[in-house]
């Protein structure tokens, strides 16, 4: 019953946000154009690079495209499902608007993340899926069924990791109300993850794979599909995902308790 209620809520919030965007058609056109342009830019970049060389640090054209397609899909889902609310929370906290998230019988986390959903974020989803299919067909070795299942599980772990990292960043806003640079760093790091991680120094790579796992988010599922992942990748993925989820939820609960509202 609880789940059904949350689905209805999710749907109604999505309908309201759709109405908001639809109210300004000029914004809508710019929004979609911007999204498609961003998707196109990387393909142009990749094609240009491979016109001059056959591999990048040993990765073929198809493998590089798979890294990009995986980053793009995770980024797309992140944007669509929770990023907007978690990013905006610092402003709601500063202005005291978050008060209203705490007085209704709905999880404040659900209200923060999922109820800010925008259906237009899904417009580019088919393009994202198409990228994965094209990259898949261009891989030098076709993935086995086991590799595909492992990659799907790791993809889910990646979603959990991305959500948890964002949740930690959103929670910090209860104390600082200003963490713009942390969000900028996160986005830059995720964009960096679309490149083969071998181009980075070892220490950097280890830090951003196991400690702040922004590189793992993309490389774990993508490299599994390429047959380049370590045999323990599933275990690592699970450990990192659950550890970050636990950290995120703990910080979030502490933040809700610490919330001081704003006067006026």
């Amino acid at each position: 019953m609880g789940v059904k209620r949350y689905i209805r809520l999710f749907r109604q919030a999505a309908v309201n946000r759709f109405a908001l965007y639809a109210a300004s058609r000029a914004d809508l056109v710019t929004f979609i154009f911007g999204k498609l342009l961003r998707l196109g830019f990387f393909v142009i970049l990749a094609v240009s690079l491979f016109n001059h060389t056959n591999t990048i640090v040993g990765y073929s054209e198809g493998q590089v495209l798979m890294l990009f397609a995986m980053m793009n899909m995770i980024d797309m889902l992140t944007q669509a499902l929770w990023y907007r609310g978690m990013y905006n929370i610092k402003d709601w906290i500063r202005r005291g608007k978050f008060d209203m998230f705490l007085v209704q019988p709905v999880s404040p986390l659900f209200k923060t993340a999922a109820m800010q959903l925008d259906l237009f974020d899904f417009i580019t989803l088919p393009v994202g899926i198409a990228y994965i299919i094209v990259a898949w067909t261009m891989l030098p070795t076709q993935p086995t069924l086991l590799m595909a299942i492992s990659a799907a599980v790791l993809f889910l772990f990646s979603i959990v990791i991305a959500f948890s990292i964002n949740l930690c960043m959103a929670s910090v806003a209860f104390w600082t109300t200003e963490n713009e640079s942390a969000w900028a760093l996160y986005r830059d790091s995720v964009y960096v993850a679309r490149f083969p991680i071998e181009i980075f120094p070892n220490g950097f790579r280890a830090f951003f794979t196991f400690v702040i796992p922004v590189l793992a988010i993309v490389s774990f599922p993508a490299k599994t599909l390429m047959g380049l992942a370590s045999p323990h990748v599933l275990l690592w993925g699970a450990i990192i995902a659950f550890a970050w989820l636990a950290l995120g939820l703990t910080l979030w609960r502490a933040g809700l308790r610490h919330y001081t509202s704003a006067s006026g």
Binding site: R5, V15, A19, L20, V106
Partner: peptide, 13 residues
């Protein structure tokens, strides 16, 4: 949005 849209959300909540 019109107030009715907010009412609908509260109806679900």
């Amino acid at each position: 949005l019109p107030a009715h849209d907010s009412f609908l959300l509260n109806k679900e909540i």
